[in-house]
Design a protein around this nucleic acid. Structure first.
Lengths: 192, 192
DNA sequence: ATCAACCTACCGACCGTTCGGTAGTCTTAG
DNA sequence: CTAAGACTACCGAACGGTCGGTAGGTTGAT
């Protein structure tokens, strides 16, 4: 049994039940250990949660930085960023769900460590939008607001997306991007 | 002390801590009763949660039905619906947060009672979009998907909106509607 | 012999809920 | 007008159970 296996099981249970409804006993059962044995690998339940949030954010930051480094026109870069985000979200659902929904269960001391990284990630999205605006491709009055709209649509997908449904993550990303890109792009009838 | 006062306090605490992290003791403290006295007014903690979800959904359904009854072109009706939704969400934040985030804590028996009403509400949004599509004003390939996108953006606002921030709910609704309406409307360069 | 991995046994705290009881108020028969 | 009875609102104490976490011992590979 490794720490990572415990974290993985914990993510699944946290997602299903929520942090507070999930007990260390549940996690122990899932990895077929005694509850006390978990404490050989982790220091506390809160530490598990923090580790999961860190993992999730690492994935997202890594994905976003790769996209930002690409040499693409803003519109394509935005599409690529949305695709990457949704793919991570929907392929690592346990982790993502914990990041988005169980974040509130972090106790203050741990939260302080987490918030700056979260802010950093959001700033990556803003920089993408700013790039598009500076090149005159996007028309955006409030970059912070639009980035929240963007992340909002995508974040909410984890509450309703079904793997056995009609859409693949890639198709979903495309539909989503279509809707937004049209709303952001300078229209033909607009002046320069 | 009335049942409604207890529900109101419970909503606030559920929003702050989450259902499972909130204790009956917390609620009792908030209304300055002994924990046991709560059971004179409510039957269980789960019943409180269900009552709050019902209250929230009642508000939203009522608002939506009023908007649907208006005699407006589809675009204006959509804008009005979004405004109404966001106003309710942001003016009744405790209730709305519980609806969106604590819904998962409903136990199966209670959930079965709640789900049909929730589905009904979402169908109201779909019918609005269908109306616009049939009149040729909106171009929508997948109504269910678009309605989820719409609700997703708006639902996520409760996680970041600050009352002391720069935007009123009405301004927020307008920005949000602008983005979406552009993505949905038939463009000039499209054929008929 | 060492040490990681895991165990049994246990701790105090708190959970939602129930119980028996007590003021105070309202109703109604004499 | 009064007194008995019923009803509402609330309380203190306790229930069985679960919580996260700890102490200390056993196992087995190196």
């Amino acid at each position: 049994m490794t720490r990572d296996e415990i974290l993985e099981a914990a993510a699944q249970i946290f997602r299903q039940k929520g942090y507070h409804a999930a007990s260390m006993q549940d996690i122990a059962d899932a990895v077929k250990l005694q509850k006390a044995s978990l404490y050989h690998h982790v220091n506390s339940k809160q530490e598990i949660l923090l580790a999961l949030l860190d993992q999730a954010l690492d994935l997202l930051i890594e994905g976003m930085e790769k996209v930002l480094a690409l040499d693409l026109p803003p519109e394509e870069k935005l599409r690529q960023a949305m695709l990457t985000y949704l793919q991570i979200m929907l392929e690592e659902r346990d982790l993502s769900s914990v990041l988005l929904l169980e974040y509130r269960s972090l106790e203050p001391e741990y939260r302080q460590r987490h918030i700056p990284r979260r802010d950093h990630y959001e700033s990556l999205w803003r920089s993408l939008l700013i790039e598009g605006a500076e090149q005159g491709v996007f028309v955006i009055s409030d970059v912070a607001l639009v980035s929240r709209f963007l992340l909002g649509v995508m974040n909410w997908t984890i509450t309703w997306y079904r793997e056995d449904g009609p859409l693949t993550p890639a198709e979903l990303a495309q539909e989503c991007a279509n809707l937004f890109v049209l709303g952001l792009k300078r229209r033909k009838d607009e002046d320069g």
